[in-house]
């Protein structure tokens, strides 16, 4: 049986990782978010993309309804120290802390450790090769597959 046939046959059967890619705040472009969304899809994940200018409340509600395994937050505006902790706290309040939360975009090095303390599992700077992010997700999901 060819490898393609095997792939096609199993494409329906496996348990899929579901991811939400969101851009909180007032960012104007979403190229980075779209790049990661595509990469996750090509890695076999089901990616829900919620688009630009999402409030923390809407992002968390979407993550809950879609019951995703990982929430990927893309942020360029510099408001990461207000928006990201807000999102993590909302998730905790709504009993959603079995969802892995990662962030990407323009986030200064000095803020990364603070963010990790608050509950962002990992931060991926611009130019991070997408396989790095994909593998991180695969190896660090909080929920059992």
């Amino acid at each position: 049986m060819s490898e393609t046939t095997l792939k096609v046959r199993s494409a329906g059967a496996e348990r899929r990782i579901r991811a939400l890619v969101a851009k909180p705040g007032l960012n104007s472009h979403d190229r980075g978010a779209k790049v990661i969304a595509r990469a996750l899809r090509d890695a076999g994940m089901e990616v829900i993309y919620t688009g630009l200018r999402q409030t923390p409340e809407r992002i968390v509600e979407a993550a809950m309804q879609e019951d995703v395994d990982v929430l990927c937050l893309s942020i360029l505006s510099g408001a990461h120290m207000t928006l990201l902790p807000k999102i993590v706290n909302l998730m905790k309040r709504k009993d959603l802390d079995d969802i892995l939360v990662i962030a990407g975009g323009i986030i200064p090095e000095e803020d990364v450790s603070k963010l990790k303390e608050m509950g962002i599992a990992e931060v991926f700077g611009p130019g991070t090769p997408t396989p790095v992010t994909v593998n991180y997700i695969r190896n660090n999901l909080k929920r059992k597959l």
């Binding site: 494409a11 899929r16 899809r41 076999g44 993309y49």
Partner: peptide, 8 residues
């Protein structure tokens, strides 16, 4: 059908 992934 190839990656099994989807863009929703």
């Amino acid at each position: 059908p190839f990656s099994g992934g989807a863009f929703l």
